[in-house]
Amino acid sequence: MDEVEARKTIVATLEGKKGKSKFYLKDFYAMFPEEKPRTIKNIVNKMVGEGTLEYWSSGSTTLIGLKGVGKQAGAEHED
């Protein structure tokens, strides 16, 4: 699979989902039904490292979304 294309698909798909900003890893797998989950997981984690995506964690579950979209730490007046 072409990783550059995959990144574009991920960003475009997330931008297309109005009213929802946090996604399960499985939602990313669903974008690429032909691929091994491990391949997609590695791309998603790389995109977090590069700052395109970010994690959100309840402590027990992790969700992933576009960086800066949806509720942010700033909303807790911590800055």
């Binding site: 964690s57 309840s58 402590g59 730490a73 807790e76 911590e78």
Partner: peptide, 30 residues
């Protein structure tokens, strides 16, 4: 429960918690 807090490159190890009465308990707002 929950939040975006973490350290760079890690998706685990930090568990974000905030208090819903920050004025009453500023020490534990974060």
């Amino acid at each position: 429960h929950g939040g975006i807090v973490g350290v760079f490159g890690y998706g685990g190890g930090v568990i974000g918690r905030y208090c819903d009465q920050p004025e009453m308990f500023p020490g534990v707002a974060h």
